[in-house]
Design a binder for these strands. Structure first.
Lengths: 339, 339
DNA sequence: GCCAATAAAGTAATCGTTTTCATTATAGTA
DNA sequence: TACTATAATGAAAACGATTACTTTATTGGC
């Protein structure tokens, strides 16, 4: 791969002149500019981002660290971030920690070594020490989706509590009272807020969920939720919940699956509400009523906030809270009178 | 962020010694090593990957360029690649071309400038010129999922033709004959092979699909497929297909949706087969019968092949073909006798 | 006790850019 | 005409590592 030196030689000028042409900086006569441009073309010259970054002390690269790239919520988020960054002439180094503390730590180390200009982080929540390593290294950080207390970083969050409250409220208004909650990941603040919001709405309505109607799994995945739903639904009708609020959409799919296996039809025999509004929520039959997070806007806001803070390090830290919104589809229906 | 020079000063040694400690290369006495290590710890030293890459002329970074990061197939693929690379001490620069030729071109340019050691590419198929730019730049490439003729690169493909053949065959064996096909993206070789394979199976069985039973949309997405399925199914029963083979799972979801809107129940009124086996294929109700691609293995094979070719540039080009496999779930059933 | 390995450390060149500084030519101004 | 901006270029010093070369001690074999 040709270097700037070779281009300079080939055009019969100094490297400084080539650099000026490449960066459109300083003075360079039209005749020389022309010669340099043809030389670049002939040698198929691509300036080395490495050398440039080393000299300029900026990399135009952002670390994007999510817990699970193969989960719809996070892949959509990563996509939105990547797309926004591209428009602002930044690159994304996408990393997936697989909910593992070790891998998250390892990746943060790598991002520091790569001298990324900033990091968008959906933390596993296992610890905050590694985030301090970034902050101490002078790297601007914005955390997204999951909040972590006591770290001096920017935040893009959604109204998890209120969203869950309105999801539960929706079921109440449809006449349901025997409502089960399926949550997960005790170390995720977002999940905890959702649980609290939903529980609060039920308490307010005079339908406080007994302990056997609230399950909190270790992982927010299909399989766990499916198993939980089987246990919840495999009871005599008068003890069975008439509605289940799964605190993310993938878990709601687990409920669909369990219901179908037990011969229950949605929404007649069971109403289901999810959280997130991943694409599949619309695809599935019946369409999933869910508390939508504005995933795309979250990614966009995170990327733009980060860039703003990179370009002006005197900016005070920001917390952006985006609204969740209840999207009613076919998976919820009024409680049937005879129950 | 501390530099090697500062560490050297702080430890009272030369930079060469620090470098030797960092890389465990050459000789260094235990006493000095100890001093260097504490200096590194005290200054929170992280070697600059930029400077190292510049000097060593390798970046340990791989470009991963997919058409749509927010599509389940590609996010799972990217995840698998990223995970495999991490295990081999490589980083992934993940890029999403959004099926756009311009963005694909722009990203290839960026990858060249970033001096990535190699590229895994699921091409949009719009052109091959940009791939030649990579090859000419001496960058090892492996293309995955979609094939492109006449480019000297490695390939990881699946048996699209045979897979589609067996998917169609499955429907034939269940007694179906009025079978519609929904495909897309005329510029994707994978899709074309699937179409051919499916059509061939139908022809062999004496059920050649008439033109109005084969639709090829511009994009392989839910919405397009949903619209197509509406048109296919909104006919009198005797002209309506008894089965639809959608050539990817997301499109199969579109069929589910259309069927449900028209009051048809799966699999009694309509059998549906998909292609890919994305996670949602298992989640959805009824479970989607589909031709599974080994997505994870594809990503793994692509990453490992690439690394092998990076580490030994005398290796001949490889084409790896992985087997697709029919996974029968609840969306297909024998043709009811009365039809 | 001498010589050749080997161990241990440092000096300085190098990777490919950008950018400061210096130098010269040219044009504009008093 | 002399002087000062400004235009146009190049030389050379960074940026932060790695590594080829030196140099000096230390050890072991004879």
């Amino acid at each position: 791969m040709a270097t700037i030196k070779e281009v300079a030689q080939h055009a019969g000028v100094s490297v400084a002149t080539v650099s000026r042409v490449v960066n459109k900086s300083g003075y360079v006569s039209v005749s020389l500019e022309e010669r340099v441009r043809t030389a670049m073309r002939e040698l198929n010259y691509k300036p080395s981002a490495l050398a440039r970054s080393l000299r300029r002390q900026v990399t135009q690269t952002i670390g994007v660290l999510v817990p699970q790239l193969d989960q719809p919520f996070f892949s959509t988020l990563a996509f939105a971030i990547e797309k926004t960054l591209f428009g602002q002439d930044y690159r994304a180094l996408v990393c997936s920690s697989e909910e593992s503390r070790e891998k998250e730590d390892a990746y943060i180390d790598i991002l520091l070594r790569q001298r990324v200009d900033g990091v968008v982080l959906a933390p596993t929540g296992h610890n905050t020490e590694n985030i301090h390593r970034l902050v101490d290294g002078g790297v601007p950080v914005v955390i997204v989706d999951r909040n972590l207390p006591h770290v001096p970083v920017n935040r893009v969050l959604t109204t998890n509590y209120q969203g869950a409250w309105s999801g539960a409220r929706h079921l109440i208004e449809l006449g349901h009272c025997r409502i089960a909650l399926i949550g997960s990941a005790p170390h995720s603040e977002a999940m905890n807020h959702r649980l609290e919001g939903a529980r609060q709405a039920l308490i307010e309505a005079g339908c406080p969920p007994p302990d056997d109607m609230v399950v909190v799994n270790t992982l927010p995945e299909f399989e766990h939720s499916y198993q939980s739903a089987r246990r919840l639904l495999d009871r005599p009708p008068e003890k069975r919940p008439t509605a289940i609020f799964a605190l993310n959409d993938v878990m709601a799919m687990g409920v669909y699956h369990a219901a179908s296996e037990l011969g229950l039809t949605l929404p007649d025999d069971l109403s289901v509400v999810g959280f997130d509004d991943i694409p599949a929520a619309r695809y599935i039959v019946p369409g999933l009523t869910t508390v939508a997070q504005p995933i795309y806007q979250m990614g966009e806001a995170a990327a733009l906030t980060l860039i703003r803070h990179i370009q002006d390090d005197s900016l005070p830290l920001e917390t952006i809270e985006l609204e969740t919104r209840l999207v009613v589809r076919g998976s919820t229906a009024p409680m049937e009178p005879h129950r």
